[in-house]
Amino acid sequence: MSEINFGRYREYVAARVDANNAMIALLAGSRLAAHSLQLHAGSPHQLPGLFPAVKDIDRFNLLPDHASELLLEADAHLSAVAIPYALAVYEAFVKDAVAMLKNEGYTVAGDRNALSAGRMHQTLFDAAGEPQPEDVIPLFHVLRCLRNAQIHHAGTVTREVTGTLSAMSEQQRGRWESLTMGSVEAMIVGGKLHFSLGHLVAAFAVTKEAARRINALLGQKISRRSWAIIAVSDFAEDAAHPRNSRQWKRGLEGFSRFHYLGGLSLSSQELEHAARESGLWTARAW
């Protein structure tokens, strides 16, 4: 699917990639560390004595065998951290997408909870007059409820969690289990949430796909005139050439061709009108 890589969307993608890479780096690091500690299996010396040059190692003042066990169990903890991380980055983007529709003149719900995590998609898609994508938004709500249970109830399975899980259709459940690489039932152990690497994968995969759907929605609902103005403003922020120069014009046209895809194909004339309307091009000739 071709995307419109406007400035705010590029920021979101970069933040998501950074968050995903950070989680995977921590996961890989924990496994590398556990592998290295196998060389010291059975040692009576604690980690600070074995690795005195490692900064802050005294905070991990354990015997190698115990430390290795904890590191090998890091998947669950990292996944528990990844869900709130991925959702926080994504939710900020959704709210900005709502603001874009509002700026375009669409009627947006303005009550206190309209932009809450549980309502923001309804607010967005109702404003656009389109149905919510049933193959991805319900999976976001599963992640949201898991996040709430983990943060506010110390990982205890809540009615919100069980209700959201039971409401999934067969297709949604199949997609969820494909992403998490395990059954829904395996996620709950003794009334507590039990996360795995698959939940880390699901957190970033679901939010990535949902953001792409919103990108496509904005492409349909925002007018070409507005997209041209957005593109011009986006380019002008970091333009290296002086305004009203041939280089500036060519730079804008190339920038638009590269970033503003998604079926837009903004013409040179549309960009000219937007640049003049924005006061960024004042020369007589284009």
Rank of each mutant, 00 (worst) to 15 (best):
I222N: 00
A109P: 03
N113V: 12
W286S: 02
G198W: 15
D96S: 06
I4Y: 09
A28M: 09
I137Y: 00
R246I: 06
L27R: 08
S68D: 04
D18Y: 05
E237D: 11
P64R: 14
A14M: 04
L139V: 04
V201F: 03
P44V: 08
L264G: 02
L200D: 01
R175V: 11
T107G: 10
E73I: 12
E134A: 14
N61I: 06
H40A: 03
R257H: 13
M120T: 15
R212Y: 07
S116Q: 09
L62W: 06
H273F: 11
G190I: 15
T123S: 15
F93M: 05
T123A: 02
A240G: 09
G163F: 09
R224Q: 03
M100I: 10
S68R: 13
A74Q: 14
L266Q: 13
H35D: 07
A275V: 06
K55C: 11
Q220N: 01
Q171M: 09
A274P: 08
F195W: 06
L261N: 11
D65K: 13
E160H: 07
S267W: 07
R144L: 05
E270T: 06
A154S: 13
F255K: 02
G263Y: 12
H153E: 06
R276Q: 09
I151P: 00
S267T: 15
T180P: 03
F235E: 01
R212I: 09
S36I: 15
Y85C: 12
L271H: 04
N215W: 05
W176H: 11
Q172I: 13
N20Q: 11
D18H: 08
P138E: 12
I214S: 06
F140P: 08
K192G: 04
Q247A: 14
T282V: 07
H153P: 00
L252E: 01
R10T: 05
Q150Y: 07
S178F: 08
S196C: 11
G190S: 09
N244L: 05
V184M: 14
A92K: 08
E73G: 02
V161K: 09
Y260W: 07
A202G: 01
E170H: 14
G118E: 13
Q269I: 12
E130I: 13
G219S: 11
A86D: 01
M168L: 13
F93Y: 14
L264P: 01
S169C: 10
D135S: 08
T156H: 15
P131V: 11
